[in-house]
């Protein structure tokens, strides 16, 4: 049961992180190159999400989000859609992750040496090609530390879905502990599983970071 919970947790974390990344890319470009209205709206979005506890956002989006979608479908004349706990969980955490990755990616794009983008423009690249060929690849090394941190936050935030009753690792542990009354053992075991996930992720991410940094000058201060 714990394993099934772990799989659910990882699916949600990966889904939320992935969709959050897409929101983040769109958000970062919107904040940097978008019109004044887009920029202000994105500012409101990132500020709101970062000021309100994830738990409150999850409750709001979990209940209100599905309700709104169903009302919208109703208005458009479609039957109400059934949103599974998994999809709702991914959606809610993705919105939270999106706000944070917007900020991370915005910083990463700003860190790209301006000359590279100008050179691309001088070649007559369209904005779309420019983004695909220059901006996105060039920002990766700057974005990875921040994104690595976000991934770790995503794995831990899945635990909050326990409060809306979704059967991820923490909730599965709670149920197993309740059934066996061995609360201490089970919570300790789940803590160990989370820790293993974190440490494994750190190893993989550190390797990825080293790979993307190949051939780049090392930053002052990062050498030991």
């Amino acid at each position: 049961m714990l394993l099934r919970g772990l799989v659910n947790s990882l699916i949600i974390a990966a889904g939320a992180f992935g969709i959050g990344l897409l929101i983040g890319i769109a958000g970062a470009f919107g904040k940097l190159y978008g019109g004044p209205v887009t920029r202000d709206l994105l500012e409101v979005y990132t500020t709101l999400v970062r000021a309100v506890p994830e738990l409150v956002l999850i409750l709001l989006l979990y209940y209100a989000g599905t309700d709104l979608i169903n009302r919208l479908m109703d208005m458009l004349g479609y039957p109400p859609v059934d949103i599974s706990g998994l999809a709702a969980g991914i959606g809610v955490l993705a919105i939270v992750q999106g706000a944070y990755s917007t900020e991370v990616l915005r910083g990463a794009i700003l860190a790209i040496p301006q000359g590279q983008i100008e050179a691309g423009r001088a070649y007559g690249m369209s904005p779309w090609t420019l983004m695909r060929r220059i901006t996105l690849p060039a920002m990766v090394p700057f974005a990875i530390p921040g994104l690595a941190n976000l991934w770790l936050i995503a794995t831990k935030d899945t635990a909050l879905l326990a409060i809306v009753g979704f059967s991820e690792l923490t909730q599965a542990t709670r149920q197993a502990a309740g059934a066996t009354k061995a609360y201490f053992t089970f919570f300790l075991a789940a803590g160990g599983i989370y820790l293993v996930v974190t440490l494994l992720s750190q190893v993989i991410l550190a390797r990825a970071e080293r790979r993307t940094r190949r051939g780049m000058p090392s930053f002052a201060g990062s050498g030991r």
Partner: peptide
Amino acid sequence: RGTPLLLQLWLLYFGL
């Protein structure tokens, strides 16, 4: 930093 706070809280309260 590697485990969720919710789990730490439950371990302390219900576990203990």
